[in-house]
Amino acid sequence: MRLHVDWTACDGRGLCAELLPELITEDEWGYPVVRTDEVSPRLEKAAGRAVDRCPALALHLLRR
């Protein structure tokens, strides 16, 4: 699975960085920095939660 940010929707609320610190950090403006968009099976559940909780619905898990 691959993590994808829809930048036209992302409001930089920071929930994803809290829920998925393994893959996502925040830049100085609060927008997510995706360290690597490759989501290992181990992190899929946490990634799914981050996707689910994004207030702007800007985070997506894509099948490759």
């Binding site: 409001d11 609320r13 920071g14 929930l15 809290e18 829920l19 609060g30 909780r53 207030p55």
Partner: peptide, 18 residues
């Protein structure tokens, strides 16, 4: 509080939402 994007009462933002 959730909409503000701030943390509150020592709770992280996802927890405020939750």
């Amino acid at each position: 509080g959730a909409r503000s994007g701030r943390t509150a009462f020592g709770l992280p933002r996802f927890a405020v939402n939750l």
